[in-house]
């Protein structure tokens, strides 16, 4: 059953900016990766889902509720990490989390403490003085602490170090196991690839591909089998290039970068234009 549904969504900002006839859906218990370069329309689409913007054409629904007209009911079940988080900078992290809990009328704070521990965040300091990574962690805690069953995450790992990125990915995997529906945007293929079941690729405001992660990965990996002179060399080669050694033969795999995947979808016609994106 589709929980998040975007149907023919259009908003034209002029000059090729905006989103045009975007359609996709995310099923119950599914993690959907929303992939695209900066300025492709990911955030614009998410703003419509959040009920911040009214669709000019098309519609967005979450669990059958209209994201604009019934946004309060939708919001009750939603957890959201904005692409660019702007806090009340006069508060400390602790005050902020307390405010959000009261504002949303969250009863239990167990989840908050558990999340703070997981991300090794001490929220006592003033938000103004926090680093980008600390602010991002604070945003994550605020988005997850009411235990929402639908998550909309706009580039949630930006600013996190690799350790915290992997803790976040573990969190997403757990949430998915609990049947949560997740929409996660990113401009990094690897991140989405590790967490999402299906991936939608958006470029210049248009969906260019929606496919299962496995299929996409399969289509965009290349394998080379190299035959080396002796086994010692073959083992060394396999170690250096992360390949699979089989006697004298070593198979190495390369993944295409997002850029290359886009090239694949667009072919030659937009080649020159793509170079400037």
């Amino acid at each position: 059953m589709s929980v998040i549904k975007v149907d023919g969504l259009t908003r034209d900002y002029g000059g090729q900016k905006g989103v045009f006839d975007v359609s996709f859906h995310v099923d119950q218990g599914e993690a959907f990766g929303f992939l695209g370069p900066n300025g492709a329309g990911k955030t614009t689409t998410i703003r419509h889902l959040m009920g911040f913007l009214k669709p000019k054409a098309g519609s967005c629904t979450i669990d059958g509720l209209d994201c604009w007209h019934e946004r309060e009911q939708v919001q009750a079940r939603l957890g959201y990490i904005p692409g660019e988080i702007s806090f009340f900078e006069d508060m400390s992290g602790t005050e902020f989390l307390k405010f959000i809990a009261e504002y949303r009328r969250i009863g239990s704070l167990n989840r908050r403490d558990e999340l703070l521990e997981r991300f090794a965040l001490d929220p006592k300091g003033r938000i103004k003085k926090m680093s980008k990574g600390m602010k991002q962690k604070l945003g994550i805690v605020a988005a997850f602490m009411h235990d929402p069953d639908i998550l909309i995450l706009d580039e949630p790992t930006s600013g996190l170090d690799p350790l915290m990125q992997s803790r976040f990915i573990d969190l997403i995997a757990e949430e998915k196991k609990h049947g949560k529906t997740i929409l996660m945007s990113s401009h990094m293929f690897e991140e989405v690839e590790r967490t999402c079941d299906r991936i939608g690729i958006i470029r210049n405001g248009r969906m260019v591909a929606v496919d299962a992660t496995a299929a996409l990965r399969e289509r965009h990996t290349r394998r080379y089998t190299v035959t080396l002179g002796n086994e010692a060399e073959a083992r060394a080669f396999a170690l250096d290039f992360n390949g699979v050694c089989n006697g004298l033969e070593v198979t190495v795999t390369t993944k295409q970068s997002l850029e290359e995947i886009f090239m694949n979808y667009y072919g030659g016609e937009n080649h020159a234009e793509h170079g400037t994106v």
Partner: peptide, 14 residues
């Protein structure tokens, strides 16, 4: 203007 309105509107508050 600053964007912190998102904190207030991204909640079940009209």
């Amino acid at each position: 203007d600053k964007g912190s309105m998102a904190l207030l509107t991204a909640a079940p508050v009209k």
